[in-house]
Design a protein around this nucleic acid. Structure first.
Lengths: 256, 256
DNA sequence: TATTGTATTTCGCAT
DNA sequence: ATGCGAAGTACAATA
């Protein structure tokens, strides 16, 4: 009964219902079959009959996946509320209701292909490096990549219009505001930089420089930057990627 | 061989490798076991040994789920590149490489608990209603919710700085630009509205009104709106939620 | 095909 | 808890 992987008979019996309800929160449940679904919450969604996979993890997170795509068709975050199975009109019904938000999810299986209970565990951590904060950190440690004789003043400097990635002085002691993007820039990025420039020119009562650093600049963005006296610097992060490394998000999955 | 659900022997044999490679893109593959993973792409991530579930869908999307949480530990979007299994150092290794971005994902299974090939299909559509476009639509049909004697001119009106949700004339024939948010507002929402106002005042060469409609306004947002002659209107969408209904995203999963 | 904007965004971090 | 910005965002609509 407490074997690592248990294959249940895919037949809608009261025994199945009992076993499923007992497994919730104890083992991961993987169930495939033909179902409909209804979600009522921040949004409403209905899903007509189709074949899908339902996964209920030990932390009570719910995932219902269709045959394609990375995003689940329906889901619920961990520990939002009790989950129960019941038999209704010859269908296997899963129901959950979030305690706080009153959001509800119903999944009704008309047929079942397989049901698995799996007792997996995981104590390792996902290490990630190479995100935006790593890039800012790297630039601060190697300012000459941006330009010669740059003096870094601060990072994540708070202003009324947001946090400035890098605040620095150039070789003529002129203030340089830098926004760093890991991805291709968008018009919004340029607008944001403009707000920073305006903010500092108002505060300092003199011209300041402002620069967007990113791997790619679409024409529209480049044009806006030029028209607004904003600078751009293209950096292909891959070229410095191998040299940066950092451990973060050292997160251990809870042990149930 | 082409049964709907096939349970493979969870033993690392060359037969398993062959069967898995043959199943890729043909049936959904669900594999549980103890593995490590490495992703190298826009970011780098490493995942130490732990028990996880690997799912490869027929559209070649890859999901690797840990024992908790809704978000996969590693994943790949559909049709990004070929996927292959191989045997290496007595481990079952899954590898994929995106053609364009050169991003790679490696998953190495040290042990396998179960392997399933499943021939599910789904032709139904997820119907969603109550999202932002529904709200805009509802407001356009019931403009008096915004204010009396409002005349709607257009929706999704394109400007140099983005698309305006609603363009209208108030009871004094003054232009009113409206931005609708289903969620709590952020400073960026207010900045965006300001850009719209500036844009239209430049075009029209006279003052225009601009309003943000949303269920909630943090102090910082409210203050920015006040300081910039921008209006706000609080609407709790739940009050009108039950009355709006619409079908969308009528999308059929490809048949493989 | 590339761009744009939403999302039951999710997630981490700072307040 | 709330606020805020980044994300391998994913995904659909659109130009």
């Amino acid at each position: 009964m407490s074997q690592k992987t248990e294959f249940l008979k895919p037949i809608l019996s009261s025994e199945l219902i009992t076993t499923l309800n007992a497994a919730i929160g104890e083992r991961m449940l993987i169930l495939a079959g033909s179902c409909t679904a209804f979600f009522d919450g921040r949004i409403k969604s209905t899903l007509e009959l189709g074949e899908r996979i339902l996964i209920i993890k030990k932390d009570l997170s719910i995932l219902m996946h269709g045959v394609s795509g990375v995003k689940p068709l329906n889901w619920q975050k961990p520990k939002q509320g009790p989950i129960s199975f019941l038999k209704e009109k010859n269908e296997l019904v899963m129901h959950t209701k979030r305690k706080k938000t009153e959001e509800e999810l119903w999944i009704r299986f008309r047929s079942i292909d397989f049901v698995i209970l799996w007792a997996g565990s995981d104590f390792s951590s996902l290490e990630i490096y190479g995100d935006e904060s790593d890039l800012v950190k790297y630039l601060v440690e190697h300012p000459s990549i941006i330009e010669k004789d740059l003096q870094i003043l601060s990072t994540e400097f708070p202003t009324d219009v947001g946090y400035v990635d890098i605040k620095a002085l150039d070789n003529k002691k002129k203030l340089l505001i830098i926004e760093v993007k890991k991805r291709k820039t968008t018009p919004s990025d340029a607008f944001q930089l403009k707000r920073y420039k305006d903010y500092f020119e108002k505060i300092e009562k003199k011209k300041v420089r402002a620069m967007l650093i990113a791997p790619s600049f679409p024409d529209k963005v480049r044009k806006y930057l030029e028209n607004n006296d904003l600078e751009s610097k293209e950096i292909d992060w891959k070229t410095i990627f191998p040299t940066i490394s950092r451990e973060k998000n050292v997160k251990i999955d809870d042990f149930f």
